[in-house]
Computed example of a mutant assay.
Amino acid sequence: MTRFGYTMMTEQAGPRELVDHVVGAEEAGFDFSVISDHTFPWLDSQGHSPYAWSVLGAAAQATTRIPLMTYVTCPSFRYHPVVVAQKAATLQLLSEGRFRLGLGSGENLNEHVTGEGWPTARVRLERLEEAVGIIRALFAGEYVTRHGRHFDVTAARLWDLPDRPPPIGIAASGPRSSALAGRLADLLVAVEPRRDLTENFDRHGGTGKPRIGQLPICYDPDRAAAVARAHDQFRWSLNGWKVNPELPLPASFAQATAHLGPEEVADSIPCGDDPGAVVEAADAFRRAGFTDLALVQIGGAHQAPFLDWARTTLLPALRAA
């Protein structure tokens, strides 16, 4: 891996704090940043969920160097693909070419708010594929009229377009989504260090394209405090991505993870202040064929000490490895 990124977790901090965090990440020397796009946190203890696109607009003005990216936006339920295309083109202009549009098939947790029900994974991927086609056509400057299986578009056009459209990433968690990413995306997005995803991405056209992974960690000089915080706020991540997209509310995630103890979480998430543990976890992504890795520091109130540690200790260790 050659690039290490910072994650703005909208589930664990308010909008002004998130902008402060990404400014700090730029100053600390991170190579890029990503942001989650939710209407709910996974667990009540996380406590936040501001509108990611407003935060991105502010971040584009508050920073000068660090790239920005959605990780990820669903363009096929609460957002219509035409609206996503307009938002993404505007962000690319505001950031002067620093934006990448990460897309995914969605989570019930966020998309249930429209009241349309939650279809099967196959239908969600069909909707994503159709949405990407609409977004690409709008990025090309066309008037777009389409009456597809899932979306109707009538004489849509983007009037403010960047010279270079935002690259599109597609999130993958299995063979169908990684194949879709290989065919339609400029980069792969994933949260698990799985070689089967990168290899299938390659088989379907992804060879040579970036692959971005994501790794949660919980930095704290007091390891016990880090383990407790990771368990309190991030145990949901151990469910895996066959389960997580189906759960509708934070209470569902709390119930699904009630059996998990703190040390079980610590077995999967590096906790404490040992950079070697993070380097080892990051290496799993490198071995799986990922080129980039976005780090998540668990705990909205614990970003400043993490960013200082990242600047002085963690990023040098990751780059040396």
Rank of each mutant, 00 (worst) to 15 (best):
D186R: 02
L184W: 08
R229Q: 13
D196K: 05
E246K: 12
V191P: 04
Q214V: 12
K242F: 15
G205W: 01
G240H: 12
A225K: 09
F201S: 05
N200R: 11
P221V: 09
D196V: 04
V243C: 11
I212A: 03
H231W: 15
A190T: 01
W236N: 13
L187G: 09
Q214T: 03
L215W: 08
R194P: 03
K242I: 14
V227Y: 10
V189S: 00
L188H: 01
R223I: 05
Y219G: 04
A190C: 08
A190H: 04
A230F: 15
G213W: 01
K242W: 15
N244K: 15
L187I: 03
N244M: 15
R211I: 06
D222F: 02
K209C: 08
I217P: 00
P245R: 07
S237V: 14
D222V: 08
C218S: 11
C218N: 06
A185I: 05
S237N: 14
C218P: 02
D220Q: 02
E246F: 11
S237C: 15
W241R: 13
Q214M: 07
L188N: 03
P221Q: 05
G240W: 06
R229S: 11
I212N: 09
V243W: 12
T198L: 03
V191Q: 10
H231L: 10
V189A: 06
R235E: 14
A226I: 01
P221E: 07
P193T: 09
D196F: 06
P245N: 07
T198W: 01
A224S: 12
V189Y: 03
L197R: 09
G206E: 00
F234N: 11
E199A: 06
N239M: 15
D202K: 02
A228L: 10
A230T: 13
L188A: 03
R223A: 07
S237H: 15
R195I: 03
Y219I: 09
N239F: 14
R194Y: 00
F201M: 07
D202S: 09
T198S: 03
L238M: 12
P221L: 04
W241A: 11
W236H: 14
P221M: 00
L238N: 10
